[in-house]
Design a protein around this nucleic acid. Structure first.
Lengths: 220, 220
DNA sequence: TAATCTATGTCAGTCGATGACTTATGACAA
DNA sequence: TTGTCATAAGTCATCGACTGACATAGATTA
């Protein structure tokens, strides 16, 4: 008993992520999964926050402490995707053409999806299916993507050594990259299996790569 | 008196737009202008529908009969822009490369802005200033743009003689075009005068045009 | 054990949005 | 002119997302 407690404490210290943190993460995922099932079952708009909270036995108020709003649930995957893209971008050589770096970032997201655990993959596909054909959520998703776009544009501008407010090319490069990702993500009227989705994304990336003039992203 | 009435009736008949219609349009613009001023004065989120309705002396319920929601006000210009793009696209020769047609559509919007009456131009610039730097509204605007994108993609796919659900290139072409427009529309930390905005948009269009491989939009 | 920190719940309230119903007003024919 | 009708506008009730203020329970640390 005492040993167990000590052991746990020790473990905590090592992983630098407390028991509390882990419990919170578990609750977060429980909310997400419950919500996802409700959404797919009875539709996004006709599912209330109250129902979601009820399904995981928390108060509606607590729900809003885990997710800033209802949309946040459906746009969950953006969080992770953005993180990977930003990290990848930082890790690419500074003298690499910006669009090339961004395509690497896209592929990194793709690899992450392909290498995810079955549970994570299932969640990802559920989220994709949820967005698929829902104009409201597609809109929200695109809006969230625009946020990522802004962050990426900051980095690209810095890398190009220009002022992001002045340089339109930085924004255009990132906008084209995000468009590529978005188009690949769409997969209408399909089963939406994982290989199907990743196939479409790869196709889209290759399409973009063979459409742009070599050096287009190095103009002054 | 009688003459006047007759005259008015006659006029109505000729223009085929009744007095009622015109009055409605006037109210619509009155709401929009009042809202715009309130937004710019005290911020978008802290202006309530009730205040807007109060400013033009209508009930809040009536407000929602003119605008589907509060965002609709700030995204007003999308309506007109989309119309011009769709019309222009229809008018372009069927064998013109799709991206070229879309760039013509963009320029058509630009020309329309440049040729607008002072009142309309002022309204346009107010709307632009309102979006400028407001992440929430930028998001909404991008989402609205995605709707236009979907419609354009339908047309482009038809023009290319492919199934819009299958063909990713159609979507990519349109996405690149809309990105071009969006990037041009941004004009951060500027006065935001009309020539300034149109200058940025022209610049963006030219940038896109000299970045893509000739014939990229004709791939199979 | 006491002091404290923090996650959660409760409650009240704001605001956007919608449906059902009533009232006013412009359009039009007799 | 007047009466009828269609439609615009107002009223009222309600829902659902979200927020701030405050209370409390349970874990954490001294």
């Amino acid at each position: 008993m005492t040993y167990g407690t000590l052991c746990q404490k020790g473990f905590e210290g090592v992983t630098a992520v407390g028991l509390r943190e882990r419990k919170k993460e578990k609750t977060r995922l429980a909310i997400l999964d419950a919500a996802l099932d409700l959404f797919l079952e009875q539709g996004y708009e006709s599912t209330t926050v109250e129902q979601i909270a009820g399904a995981v036995e928390i108060s509606p108020r607590t729900f809003f402490r885990y997710f800033t709003n209802k949309d946040h649930l459906a746009l969950w995957f953006h969080e992770h995707g953005e993180e990977i893209m930003l990290e990848t971008l930082e890790s690419r050589p500074r003298d690499e053409p910006p669009f090339t770096s961004l395509m690497h970032a896209l592929r990194a997201v793709l690899l992450d999806v392909q290498g995810s655990t079955p549970v994570d993959a299932a969640r990802f596909l559920k989220l994709r299916r949820l967005l698929d054909g829902n104009p409201y959520l597609i809109g929200r998703s695109v809006a969230r993507g625009a946020e990522t776009e802004r962050r990426l544009a900051e980095l690209i501008a810095a890398r190009r050594g220009v002022d992001p407010d002045e340089d339109q090319l930085s924004h255009l490069i990132v906008a084209f990259a995000m468009s590529t990702m978005r188009v690949g993500f769409e997969c209408p009227r399909r089963d939406g299996t994982l290989p199907e989705v990743t196939e479409r994304m790869t196709e889209s990336i290759e399409l973009a790569e063979r459409s742009l003039l070599p050096g287009w992203d190095l103009q002054r």
